[in-house]
Amino acid sequence: MKLWKDVISWNAMIEGYAAHGFFEEALELFKLMRRLNVRPTYITFISVLNASADSGLVEEGWKQFKSMSSEYGIEPWVEHCATLVYIVGWHGQLEEAMDLINSMPCEPDTAVWGALLGACRVHHNVELA
């Protein structure tokens, strides 16, 4: 049970840093967590992806998204996919965002479509919207 409390504490710290604009610190905490062999959960990855999105780190977002399943066997939930669509779409990679939606392992929801539509609005891509 102690490990579970540790994961919850790490998740709270990572999300707290990210929610208050300390994105780099959130990502550094995640790296430290991994070095200390604390196994991340699907919630950890939601916070890490949010920190990557808000700091504009597209490659970091992709890297962490891929590591969920490849390193930890955590299948992406719709929340993870929506955040990745947000990350790539808001940075102008609209076709890549659409490809991600088409290949998602789960059914896209309003958050996913909202992320894409918001990115289309920002980048003036009415055709894709």
Rank of each mutant, 00 (worst) to 15 (best):
D54S: 12
W77T: 15
E59S: 12
C81P: 02
P108Q: 11
T83E: 01
G89Q: 10
P76S: 11
L57H: 12
A115V: 05
G92M: 09
E59C: 00
E60K: 13
D99M: 11
A51E: 00
L84R: 04
S55M: 09
V126N: 05
E96R: 14
Y86Q: 10
A51S: 11
C81S: 12
L94Y: 02
T83R: 15
N125Y: 01
L117Y: 13
S69W: 11
F65Q: 03
C106S: 00
S103T: 15
G61N: 12
S67L: 09
S70K: 14
E79L: 02
E71P: 06
S55E: 00
L100N: 07
N102F: 00
D54H: 15
C81H: 13
M68S: 07
F65P: 02
E71N: 14
W113H: 05
A97M: 04
S70D: 12
L117K: 09
Q93I: 01
M68F: 01
S70F: 06
H124G: 03
F65D: 03
G114I: 07
A97N: 07
I87T: 08
A119F: 08
W90Q: 13
N125A: 02
V88H: 00
D99W: 10
M68W: 02
V122S: 09
A82C: 05
G56W: 11
H80D: 04
V78M: 10
H124Y: 01
L84E: 06
N50Y: 11
G61E: 12
M98I: 13
E95V: 13
Y86N: 15
A115E: 05
I87Y: 05
V88N: 03
A53F: 07
F65R: 06
I74F: 07
S69T: 11
Y72P: 06
V126Q: 11
R121Y: 03
T110V: 15
G118P: 00
G114Q: 05
Q93H: 14
M68P: 01
I87N: 01
E60T: 10
V78S: 09
Y86K: 11
D99N: 14
P105W: 10
S67W: 04
Y86R: 11
T83W: 01
I87Q: 08
L49P: 09
T83K: 14
E59Q: 13
C106Y: 04
P105E: 03
A115K: 02
N50D: 14
R121K: 15
D54Y: 13
H91D: 07
A111Q: 13
N125Q: 00
G73S: 08
D99C: 03
L116V: 02
H123W: 11
